[in-house]
Design a protein around this nucleic acid. Structure first.
Lengths: 214, 214
DNA sequence: TAGATTGTTAATCGATTAACAATC
DNA sequence: TAGATTGTTAATCGATTAACAATC
């Protein structure tokens, strides 16, 4: 176990993912040690927050030196399940779905794309990278045979719920929802929203606030 | 002014963006009234949270009936600046950058793409939809002439900071960062992160927790 | 040893939830 | 009128920050 007690608070998990990517680049750069102060500075956080977060892990730094990048990286990878390959599928072969399927960073991060599905017969069969768009009818079989854990929803808002239902029925354990609709799933299935338009609106509000208070 | 006091807390802003999209679909469906209870149910929130959030706005519901979808929608649009067109650019013409540029939802949501830029000469000039990839050297001129407010970063992590610097120097007011690096900008510039791999890791952790507590 | 940096405790801050009087 | 639903206040809960003794 790479983790002391129970489950970590969501904000901590979000920061841990950032520590992990940062450790990976530090290791690559040949940096062996990092202090909570340095780590905080690089990521825009206080050193206190960093130490508090790391204290959740089953790993301790060393007083005068800080944290060992390679070890902390491994511990983080373990907690975040980043040391195992995960099979995912994408539903929706529009621009976004195609981009996700071709996105190199996924493979490099341990997410293996096992299929792209679309309900439009005109799109089914089209080539995307080295694979082809499959019909929705084949989704359940793929999820089972390839042991797919995660489904990514890249369809218009109106079809998001029905696509989610199909994936849940097929046995997917988590959904990454890129559509702008809220989707309902059984408690046993996890959902994380990743809506770009919503993020743009958040950004726009932050800009507005800066404009007004400047 | 469509807002009582000062600036809204970030979690409230995030939920308001969701209320807005929901109002738009309700209006489209012809639904005229919605209660805090119904709205909460549709979005996975408590009715108390919904009322608390809406109380931040310069708009009041009516006791026995709830909120008027069309009006609440307009008020939300005003607060979130969703009633004006915003000019954006994309840097990075890889899969993700191309997908963003072609993504129809942006135009429908008031975000107008004014250019796609890339530093790779082999990619510059390539056709994407109806426009062409431009060289980084033209970025500053475009930002000024087209009054670009937002820049989207869709380049590898290693180049994210330098791309951000170029955009900030050109006068962009906010950055949507899709790269997995943390970027540093002056306080006058807003940044929102939208990292898909980080979201996938969050999702993976949520799945792990469910597995262990089930 | 002296000094830097940790892990942890306690204090502050902010967000969510519950409860209820006001009101249409 | 009676009942449903609001806006708001207060209570709870959780997250962040500050401070500091422990320690390498």
């Amino acid at each position: 176990v790479a983790q002391k007690g129970k489950s970590l608070p969501p904000p901590v998990v979000r920061r841990l993912t950032r520590y992990l990517t940062h450790m990976q680049s530090l290791v690559e750069e040949g940096v062996e040690w990092v202090s909570s102060e340095e780590l905080g500075e690089a990521l825009g956080l206080g050193s206190s927050t960093v130490r508090q977060d790391i204290s959740h892990l089953d790993y301790s730094g060393i007083s005068k030196r800080g944290y060992e990048t390679a070890i902390l990286g491994k511990v983080l990878a373990k907690v975040l399940d980043a040391d195992t390959e995960v099979n995912v599928i994408v539903v929706g072969a529009g621009n976004l779905g195609r981009a996700l399927s071709l996105h190199g960073e996924f493979a490099a991060s341990g997410f293996r794309i096992c299929g792209i599905f679309d309900s439009d017969p005109k799109v089914v069969g089209r080539k995307i990278g080295s694979s082809r768009v499959k019909p929705m009818g084949e989704l359940a079989a793929t999820v089972r045979s390839r042991r797919v854990t995660i489904g990514m929803i890249a369809v218009p808002a109106a079809s998001a719920q029905s696509v989610a239902d199909v994936m849940v029925a097929a046995g997917v354990k988590g959904l990454l929802n890129l559509a702008s609709a809220h989707i309902l799933v059984p408690k046993s299935v996890a959902v994380v929203d990743a809506r770009i338009v919503a993020s743009l609106r958040e950004l726009l509000y932050a800009i507005k606030v800066r404009r007004e208070t400047a």
